[in-house]
C-alpha cells in the first residue's frame, strides 16, 4: 500500500513538471507531436531508472561508508552524463530501429534536471531499494503522462485560431498553467 501511495503521489500529486516545474525545457521543446512525446518519455524513463539505481548503490556503498557524502552532487551529475553517453553508444551499435526512435532525444536528457532530481530525492527521502525502484519508475511515468497529454493538446492548438502574438510557446505556457491547476486538484487524494 505504501508503494502504491508513493507511485500515485509521484505520478499525479507531486508531478515533477506541473508541481515542481522541473524539466520544462525538453517539456516545451519536444511536445509538439504525439510521436516525439512518446519517444522522449521512454528515453527519460530508461535513463532515470538506470541512473537512479547506479547513484543509489554508489551513495550507499562508496560515498557513505567513506564519509564522502559532500561529493554527492558531482557524483550524480557525472554518473548521469556518463550513463546517457553509454546508453546512446549501445543503442547506436546494437539497435538501429531503437536509435531512430530514441537517439535524437538522448542528448536532451543530459540537460533534463528531472534525472538529477529523482537521484537526489531517493537519497534525501532515505528510500529503500524497492522504494527507489518504484519512485524511479513513477516519476518519469508522470513526466511521460503530462508530456503526452500536452503533445495532444499542442497538436490541436496548431490548427486553432489563436491570436498571432500567442502562437507557439505563449499559448503552450498558458495551456501548461491550466494543466497545472487541474493537477493541483488531485492534491488531496493521498
Amino acid at each position: 500500500m505504501k508503494l502504491l501511495s508513493l507511485a500515485l503521489a509521484a505520478i499525479l500529486v507531486n508531478n515533477v513538471v506541473l508541481t515542481k516545474y522541473l524539466g520544462l525545457c525538453p517539456f516545451f521543446g519536444v511536445s509538439r507531436n504525439f510521436r516525439s512525446a512518446i519517444g522522449m518519455g521512454l528515453a527519460v524513463t530508461f535513463v532515470i531508472f538506470g541512473a537512479s539505481l547506479i547513484t543509489y548503490f554508489l551513495y550507499y556503498l562508496i560515498l557513505l561508508p567513506n564519509g564522502m557524502e559532500y561529493l554527492r552532487l558531482i557524483t550524480f551529475i557525472l554518473v548521469i552524463a556518463s550513463f546517457v553517453q553509454l546508453t546512446e553508444m549501445f543503442i547506436k551499435k546494437y539497435s538501429a530501429s531503437l536509435y531512430k526512435t530514441l537517439g535524437i532525444y538522448l542528448p536532451l536528457i543530459t540537460t533534463n534536471c528531472v534525472v538529477l532530481y529523482v537521484a537526489q530525492e531517493n537519497i534525501t527521502m532515505k528510500y529503500t531499494l524497492l522504494e527507489t525502484c518504484v519512485n524511479s519508475l513513477a516519476v518519469p511515468a508522470g513526466y511521460m503522462l503530462v508530456l503526452v497529454l500536452f503533445a495532444c493538446m499542442r497538436e490541436r492548438l496548431e490548427g486553432a485560431d489563436t491570436p498571432r502574438a500567442w502562437k507557439g510557446v505563449p499559448i503552450a505556457l498558458i495551456t501548461a498553467a491550466l494543466m497545472a491547476m487541474a493537477f493541483s486538484g488531485l492534491a488531496g487524494i493521498i
Partner: peptide
C-alpha cells in the same frame, strides 16, 4: 571514456541526419 567511445561509434545507416528541432528557447 564514455564520451570518446560514444563519439567513435558510427551511427546506424539512415540515421546520420536525425534531428529534433527544439523550439523552447
Amino acid at each position: 571514456l564514455a564520451y570518446i567511445l560514444n563519439h567513435r561509434t558510427k551511427k546506424p545507416a539512415g540515421c546520420e541526419n536525425l534531428r529534433e528541432e527544439c523550439s523552447s528557447c
